[in-house]
Write a protein that binds this DNA or RNA. Structure first.
Length: 636
RNA sequence: GGGCCCGUGGCCUAGCUGGAAAGGCGUCGGCCUCCUAAGCCGGAGAUCCCGGGUUCGAAUCCCGGCGGGCCCGCCA
């Protein structure tokens, strides 16, 4: 059997030693081995967990520490400290084991297959094709990409999908505007162009509609509310007019000659019905945006296996209609003023269903409209159809990387699958939720054209990386590639190292941090390691008898954790644990680098062993970074 | 109004299947004739939001507050 993790072998060794030392009735798999605090040892076993009584735990710790001291070749020393047994491991034997695993795995080190791997479809990013990707989508894309890579390292078969949301009113808004201005050329990426047009149409239509509403509104409170909204959109209009006067006036004029909203609704209806003129128009607009997305994503090193057009997978094939029909037939949907409503709330009253689907006990579920009275479907309806479609592609689990705002909708989708009789599927739709990226002071809004685009962020990141290169005497022209890797690495790490459940307030200096606990910090440690390996000359890495000492232990242990960290990151969908682990490894390596000579170590065996350690660190850092989607530079 | 998420040194964050409070930024002090100083070493700095409860033991679990974000649409 192939050994993927040296640490796992070590842990088993320690557990066995404990089981031999424990009274027979207490022995078993319950021993959990953890990391000891620095200065107390390498590994620790907490006996409180086993005995639940303070005096007893302390007493047993004393007893066991004495017994296991010489009970395994890997254990150098064991000491009892207040209910814990702190263990020091023997660096040479363990070092040899780690070396064997790391070098035999090489570029695949970290791969740690799950005992029962499955087929997973990850859907991420899925931005509406009506504006460029902004920093919020970037968080989504970076998380989704890393998630896919980590799950693959866990042995799962992963397919990454982008859901092109080409059906819906937002698309019709963009298409409506594009129809009027497509003859006007602008020297920007296509998605930026569409984004501007989309925002202008939104502003014009909203101002027009709100103005109409306020004239007929009798209730003063309600009227004040409308006035506030109107004022907001007037401000937005002013901003957009300043950005592109010509486009704004063309669209403004056009909307005076007709009712834009009626036309937008018509485009939406015709597209959903598959009428040729609408298909041609909408696909052209969406296609332009997608082209822009692909440019941005490819620069980020993020790619997709499939681009699922909502119209294809959920509408024109009749799947959404089928979902509605079956929900009605099953008695979970009713007609309300011409619209069809799914009774998700009633279904959610059943505590057993909640438990099965992992819906929090008190979560308030509301009914869900499936079909408008004009016969068109809604986003959530199509999402139900799409979820079914994903399972039909052979997935046994579906992970949706979607903003936390959509928690209710995701639960409604689950409930609909359940109601349709797809119980297993409902249980296996995972909402990988993440919080928004907020701009201090302003609310990001695609409809208002207010956002920091992903392209701007990447440009700025790369620019700052370039400035750093110049400071270090590296020619920026020759190091374009390094600047790209470092700048983008900084952005990715910033978004991966903190929990996705924490709102991220966007600050340039925080995201473009190049110091400790950053992407570049990890890249730098890697570059230093590579640099030593390059300069090694005749010295070959190896693990001669007795060449590893106390100084090496911390790094050896850290290197050997990678497969464990991968397992945790994949099984618990906690990418941040991998990011933080790499930071810890880089920190430890930098400290080691400063403390001991490597190439000049005496005797030669010591230098060989240290070089071997440097190589292991380089491999570990590189593989870890790749799993996060961070590219390792060759120098910096 | 109901619900979901978050609340840890001045700031940002890890720990949250209960058992030894962990990093970064900032701050104060030190380290480049030696493998890249995007670095390293050291100091100061914490009523783990508040109040109860469960437990031998709570940052972690339960209840009740408070503060912030989000959701409750024939939008997506």
């Amino acid at each position: 059997m192939k050994l993927y993790s040296a640490y796992q072998a070590l842990e088993r060794e320690v557990r066995d030693a404990f089981n031999r030392a424990l009274p027979g009735d207490l022995a078993g798999p319950g021993i959990s081995v953890e990391k000891a605090p620095p200065d107390r040892g390498d590994l620790a076993v907490n006996l409180y967990r086993l005995f639940r009584d303070e005096d007893m735990a302390v007493k047993m710790a004393n007893e066991i520490a004495g017994k296991i001291k010489n009970s395994s070749r890997y254990i150098m020393d064991a000491r009892s400290e207040g209910g814990y047994v702190n263990i020091r491991i023997e660096p040479n034997l363990y070092g040899k084991l780690v070396w064997d695993v790391v070098t035999s795995m090489g570029g695949t080190y970290g791969f740690n297959p799950h005992p029962s791997p499955i087929r997973i479809i990850i859907e991420h990013t899925s931005a509406n094709p009506v504006h460029p990707l902004h920093v919020g989508h970037l968080r989504n894309a970076i998380l989704g990409d890393a998630l896919a890579k980590v799950l693959r390292a866990r042995g799962h078969t992963v397919e990454v999908h982008f859901y092109v949301d080409d059906v819906g009113l937002q698309m019709a808004y963009a298409a409506y505007g594009y129809e009027k201005v497509k003859h006007v050329k602008r020297d920007v990426k296509p998605d930026h162009y569409i984004g501007l047009v989309y925002a202008i149409v939104n502003a014009i239509v909203n101002v027009r509609e709100l103005d109409g509403k306020r004239r007929t509104e009798e209730d003063p409170a309600r009227r004040a509310e409308i006035d506030r909204e109107l004022l907001d959109w007037l401000w937005v209009s002013k901003e957009l007019m300043e950005r592109d006067e010509e486009l704004f006036s063309i669209l403004s004029e056009a909307t005076k000659r007709e009712n834009p909203l009626a036309r937008i609704l018509e485009i939406n209806r015709a597209y959903e019905a598959g009428e040729e003129w609408a298909v041609k128009l909408v696909r052209e607009v969406a296609g332009l945006c997608i082209e822009g997305f692909k440019q941005t994503l490819s620069r980020m090193g993020i790619s997709f296996d499939k681009w699922d057009w909502e119209s294809d997978v959920a509408v024109w094939n009749g799947l959404s209609d089928e979902v509605i029909r079956q929900l009605k037939e099953a008695g979970y949907a009713h007609v309300d003023r011409g619209a069809i409503v799914f009774e998700a709330d009633k279904l959610a009253e059943d505590a057993e269903i909640r438990r099965k689907l992992g819906i929090p006990e008190n979560f308030t579920v509301t009914p869900l409209t499936l079909m408008r009275s004009d016969g068109t479907t809604l986003y959530a309806t199509r999402d139900i159809a799409y979820s079914l479609w994903k399972f039909k592609q052979g997935a046994s689990r579906v992970v949706n990387v979607i903003a936390a705002q959509q928690s209710l909708e995701q639960i409604q989708v689950k409930l609909a699958l359940y109601a349709l009789g797809y119980v297993k599927e409902a249980e296996n739709v995972i909402h990988f939720s993440y919080e928004l990226v907020t701009l201090p002071g302003v609310k990001m809004s695609g409809r208002r054209g207010r956002y920091v685009s992903a392209d701007e962020l990447i440009d700025e990141a790369v620019k700052r990386a370039c400035e750093e290169l110049v400071k270090r005497g590296l020619e920026p022209e020759e190091n374009r590639d390094v600047a790209e890797r470092v700048g983008i690495g900084a952005v990715k790490y910033a978004m991966l190292s903190i929990s996705p459940l924490r709102p991220l307030s966007f600050k340039w200096e925080k995201i473009l941090d190049f110091e400790r606990n950053s992407g570049p910090f990890i890249q730098y440690a890697y570059v230093r390691a590579r640099s030593i390996l390059r300069k090694a000359g005749d010295l070959k890495p190896g693990v001669p008898e007795g060449a590893f000492g106390e100084e090496e232990k911390k790094l050896l242990l850290l290197v050997s954790y990678l497969p464990e960290v991968v397992a945790k990151a994949a099984d618990e969908l906690k990418i941040e644990s991998l990011a933080q682990y790499l930071n810890e490894l880089a920190l430890a390596f930098n400290s080691y680098y400063d403390k001991v000579p490597i190439l000049k170590a005496e005797p030669r065996e010591k230098a060989q062993a240290r070089l071997a350690l440097v190589k292991m660190v380089a491999i570990t850092l590189e593989n870890g970074m790749r799993m996060l989607g961070i590219d390792p530079p060759h120098r910096m």
